[in-house]
């Protein structure tokens, strides 16, 4: 059997095949179990050096990657933009070359500019994993959302997922759109027209103008964070009105024809895009998403380092 490989970098889901995405999700399954053990460690990446290069502040993603790396026994270094040479005006390419000169194996990068991960991947030999670049992609978030959906619905083909909110500025939305479409799900986007990107329907998604329509249509809602600065930039009049018109509330969900699975990539603005009783309600999988994030990132790190899925399954992730 030929097993697809991921190539050198994971920049986004747009250019992955369905087979590659399936491979990551399948590889994540056995890694879920590792985090449930009393001793949460396998030797899969022992001796590998990984740099977590975060040009943007991040709690969840950075810690999730760090746990994934440590549970695979890699040696990790965290670099935050503030307090490093970056804040002294060093360019991204120089930062990359200096890291490379220290003979590292992988870089996990979070950056405020779209394309930064690819830029880095094109210029260094180490594997590059995109942990979110500008408004482009956040592939491991897309993958963990898909893994969570798959856990619940068993398969993604034919599933109806509505991505709600600020799609324009969302890398999570783009990774979800590409990944879900490739695995046969139906995808809709729903949000104020001011926060939907031009030509988004040409990506193969349905545009639903009202949140009520999305709730009627979908099996699952993936509710995006509304950045507070969107109001100042004039995209929406107020957070209050946003909640009134586009908020996912229990009243609105009560009118749905079926129970909807609720996802949110975090951090949440409770009372803005999502009400607390929905976030904390019985159909919310917001915390299982976080749990799955570690497993998906372990799978990505493992596969990029040259691991194959059958080395993991059943064997607890032993080395070759």
């Amino acid at each position: 059997m030929t097993v697809p490989t991921l190539g050198k970098d994971l920049v986004g889901l747009e250019h992955l095949s369905a087979g590659q995405i399936q491979l990551i999700l399948d590889t994540a399954e056995p890694f879920k179990e590792v985090s449930e053990r009393p001793i949460k460690k396998v030797p899969a990446l022992r001796g590998k050096t990984i740099v977590n290069l975060f040009f943007e502040s991040s709690t969840r993603t950075r810690i999730s990657f760090e746990f994934a790396e440590k549970r695979l026994s890699a040696d990790t270094v965290n670099v935050a933009a503030s307090g490093s040479s970056v804040s002294k005006g060093e360019t991204l390419v120089d930062t990359a070359r200096n890291l490379e000169a220290m003979r590292i194996d992988m870089v996990v990068i979070r950056h405020h500019s779209s394309g930064a991960a690819q830029f880095l991947g094109d210029r260094i030999r180490s594997n590059v994993i995109n942990a979110g670049d500008g408004k482009h992609e956040h592939p491991t978030q897309g993958l963990l959302d898909m893994l969570t959906l798959r856990d619940h619905f068993k398969k993604l083909a034919g599933l109806k997922v509505a991505i709600c909110g600020d799609v324009l500025h969302s890398r999570v939305a783009r990774s979800n759109i590409w990944g879900l479409l490739k695995l046969g799900a139906e995808v809709a986007v729903c949000g104020p027209p001011t926060l939907l990107p031009r030509g988004v329907e040409q990506l193969g998604v349905t545009v639903l103008p009202r949140i009520e329509d999305a709730i009627q249509w979908a099996d699952a809602l993936n509710i995006l964070r509304l950045q507070l600065e969107r109001m100042e930039a004039g995209f929406i009049p107020s957070l209050r009105e946003y909640n009134r018109v586009f908020g996912v509330t229990s009243d609105r969900l009560a009118r749905a024809p079926k129970d909807l699975l609720i996802l949110h990539p975090g951090p949440m603005n409770r009372g803005v895009e999502i009400d607390s009783d929905v976030a904390d309600g019985p159909h919310s999988v917001i915390l299982p998403q976080v749990t799955n994030g570690v497993a998906v990132r372990m799978a990505v790190l493992y596969l990029l380092a040259g691991g194959a899925p059958d080395w993991v399954s059943g064997s607890g992730g032993e080395e070759r």
């Binding site: 747009e14 779209s114 394309g115 670049d133 500008g134 408004k135 482009h136 992609e137 890398r171 783009r174 990107p197 031009r198 030509g199 988004v200 040409q202 990506l203």
Partner: peptide
């Protein structure tokens, strides 16, 4: 340019 490519690349477009 603001269009399908800017949407895909996640770059801010100029209409």
């Amino acid at each position: 340019h603001e269009g399908l490519v800017s949407t895909r690349l996640g770059l801010k477009g100029i209409p």
